[in-house]
């Protein structure tokens, strides 16, 4: 079973040379720490920067330089700043190659819910609806089950949707799963996790074909 860093490490393998990548808040943010350093990748933050660098050293924080999670950041050589319309133009216009975000629920048809729990949590969708409506390559980073032990990979989402039929891949502490027309297709198991464990934690249709390899981390 993986921890949050393990999930981020596995997702980092999906990042290819020349990719522009948008990272969501939470586990997705950690992905930047594990991207191979022999490839060239630029991170976009939807509040208006391309070429986002690591957090600043103490004393070098700048209130005018933050990411979408409102954290202080740095800009790498070659970075650019832009307004929010241009930022979402990059996203809507499918110029961003890969979007990695968290979710509360994903359905076997690729629907995603990650912005609202009616009556409990209403913080807003931020840029998530724009991202999932436009991006062609969307990887969800999340735990396989919620705190109550219930599956987050469902036949149908129960929470209000963020987007429909959009998720392409899911990486959890248990597995790597591709969303296909027929349902969740199991691609890889986390170290020490059996196919049975994954089946038990998945409410939606799980397609298991042949031997399922263990992740290489």
């Amino acid at each position: 079973m993986l921890d949050k860093n393990g999930i981020a490490k596995r997702i980092a393998q999906e990042v290819q040379d020349g990719y522009y990548v948008n990272l969501g808040i939470g586990i997705p943010t950690l992905v930047a720490n594990f991207v191979r350093n022999d490839i060239n990748v630029e991170f976009q933050s939807e509040n208006g920067i391309l070429g986002m660098g690591p957090f600043p050293f103490e004393g070098e924080e700048d209130a005018d330089l933050i990411n979408a999670g409102k954290q202080t950041i740095t800009a790498l050589p070659g970075a650019s700043f832009f307004d929010s319309a241009m930022s979402f133009g990059m996203i809507r216009g499918q110029h961003v190659d890969l979007t990695i975000l968290g979710a509360m629920e994903v359905a076997e048809n690729g629907d995603i819910a990650n912005w609202k729990i009616p009556g409990k949590m209403v913080k807003g969708m931020g840029g998530a609806m724009d991202l999932v409506a436009s991006a062609e390559n969307i990887i969800v980073a999340m735990m396989h089950t919620n705190r109550a032990g219930e599956s987050k990979l469902l036949k149908r989402c129960s929470l209000p949707l963020t987007g429909v039929g959009c998720v392409t891949k899911i990486v959890t502490e248990l597995a790597v799963i591709e969303v296909t027309e027929k349902g969740f297709k199991l691609l890889e198991r986390a170290p020490g996790v059996s196919v049975e464990d994954i089946k038990k934690a998945t409410e939606g249709t799980l397609i298991v074909e042949g031997d399922i390899p263990e992740m290489k981390l």
Binding site: F55, E61, Q71
Partner: peptide, 10 residues
């Protein structure tokens, strides 16, 4: 110019 999430590295 308040900072909401002051985040630094060592």
């Amino acid at each position: 110019k308040r900072i909401e999430q002051r985040t630094v590295r060592q």
